[in-house]
Design a protein around this nucleic acid. Structure first.
Length: 292
DNA sequence: AACAGAGCCAACCGCCTAATG
DNA sequence: TCATTAGGCGGTTGGCTCTGT
C-alpha cells in the first residue's frame, strides 16, 4: 500500500482549469485570503483538490505574477543562482519577482539547460563539458527514451502491477529553510546588480523561500583581502566573521534580529551542500564572476 | 495535406517539513 | 515525545502546439 493521496479524488475535477473555476478561486481568495487550502475548494464551490487550488493560485492567478518572456537579465540571474543553489526552484524564484518556481523550472529544463550545454557548460555542475555535442545527443536520446517508455507505461497501465522492477533509491537533498514573514528594517544600500551582474534587473528586496521579505538582504557585499569585493551570505552575528563564506570582512551592516537564525540555518545548509557534493562551487570565482 | 517527432508548459504526484494536538 | 495534518517543494507527466518531412 502506498501513501494515501492528499485528499479524496472521488468526484474531483482534474486537468486544465476553466475560466469559471479561476473566477471562483480568485473571488474566494480576494474575499478570504490565502491559506486553508484543504477546506478552501469546498467553501469556494470548487470540485478541486486543495493542492490543485494552491498550485493554480500560486502559478497562475496571483495578481503579482509577471507574464511574458523571461528577459536576458533574468536568464543570467537564474543561471547564476542555479550554480549556487542547484535545483531549488522556489529559492531561485524568490529572487525573481513575479516569476514562479514552476515557470523557472520549466524554463530551465526547456531553454537554459540546452543553452548551457551548447555553450559547453554542464547545466548540473556548471563545469566545462568535454563534449557538448555528445551531451546534447545523450539528453535527446534520454528524452525520447522516456517518452516512449511513458507511452508504453500508458499502454500497460491497466496491466502490470506485479511487474515492478527494483526500486531506485531516492536521494533527497536537504530542503531550504522556509522563512515565513519576519520583519526586518529596510536596507536600501544593497545593490542587487552585484548579484545579477552589472546589467542586471533592478531588483530590490529580499526573497527567501516563497515569501518576500521587504528589502531584506541575505546577501552582502564583503571585502576580501586579496580579491576585492565579493558576495557572501550574511549570517548571524556581525562580529562572527568566520561564518562568512571564505572568511572575508563585512562591508554592509546587518539588521537581522539576533534571535532569528533562519538565514544562519540556510547558510549552514548551503555549506553542507557544498561539502556533500563533489561538484563544489568555487565561491571565489563565483563572486568574481558576479562583478564582471 | 497528413503524419511523426520534438518542444513546451500547466498540472499532477509523492515526499518532506513544520505546525498542531 | 509521538502521531497526524496541512502546506510546500522538486520531479514528472501528458496533452496541446509547432516543425520538419
Amino acid at each position: 500500500m502506498g501513501r494515501a493521496p492528499c485528499c479524496s479524488k472521488v468526484g474531483l475535477h482534474r486537468g486544465p482549469w476553466t475560466p469559471r473555476e479561476d473566477t471562483l478561486l480568485t473571488k474566494y481568495i480576494q474575499a478570504h485570503g490565502e491559506g486553508h487550502w484543504r477546506s478552501m475548494p469546498k467553501k469556494a464551490g470548487l470540485l478541486r483538490c486543495g493542492k490543485s487550488c494552491r498550485l493554480r493560485w500560486m502559478n497562475y492567478l496571483r495578481p503579482d505574477i509577471k507574464r511574458g518572456n523571461i528577459t536576458p537579465d533574468e536568464d543570467d540571474l537564474i543561471i547564476r543562482l542555479h550554480a549556487l543553489l542547484g535545483n531549488r526552484w522556489s529559492l531561485i524564484a524568490g529572487r525573481l519577482p513575479g516569476r514562479t518556481d514552476n515557470e523557472i523550472k520549466n524554463y530551465w529544463n526547456t531553454h537554459l539547460s540546452k543553452r548551457l550545454i551548447s555553450e559547453g557548460t554542464d547545466p548540473n555542475t556548471h563545469k566545462k563539458l568535454l563534449d557538448p555535442l555528445k551531451e546534447l545527443k545523450r539528453r535527446k536520446n534520454n528524452k525520447s527514451k522516456n517518452r516512449s517508455n511513458n507511452r508504453n507505461k500508458q499502454k500497460n497501465k491497466s496491466k502490470s502491477v506485479a511487474n515492478v522492477g527494483p526500486e531506485k533509491p531516492k536521494l533527497h537533498l536537504p530542503k531550504p529553510v522556509r522563512v515565513t514573514s519576519f520583519s526586518l528594517p529596510r536596507n536600501e544600500s544593497f545593490d542587487w546588480n552585484v548579484l545579477s551582474g552589472s546589467s542586471g534587473p533592478e531588483i530590490r528586496g529580499g526573497y527567501v523561500g516563497s515569501e518576500m521579505v521587504n528589502n531584506v538582504n541575505p546577501w552582502c557585499n564583503f571585502k576580501d583581502g586579496e580579491n576585492g569585493v565579493g558576495v557572501g551570505f550574511l549570517v548571524g552575528d556581525e562580529d562572527d566573521h568566520d561564518d562568512l563564506v571564505n572568511g572575508s570582512d563585512f562591508e554592509c551592516q546587518s539588521d537581522l534580529p539576533s534571535g532569528d537564525n533562519s538565514l544562519a540555518k540556510l547558510y549552514e545548509e548551503y555549506l553542507d551542500l557544498l561539502k556533500m557534493e563533489e561538484t563544489q562551487v568555487d565561491l571565489d570565482n563565483f563572486a568574481e564572476s558576479l562583478l564582471i
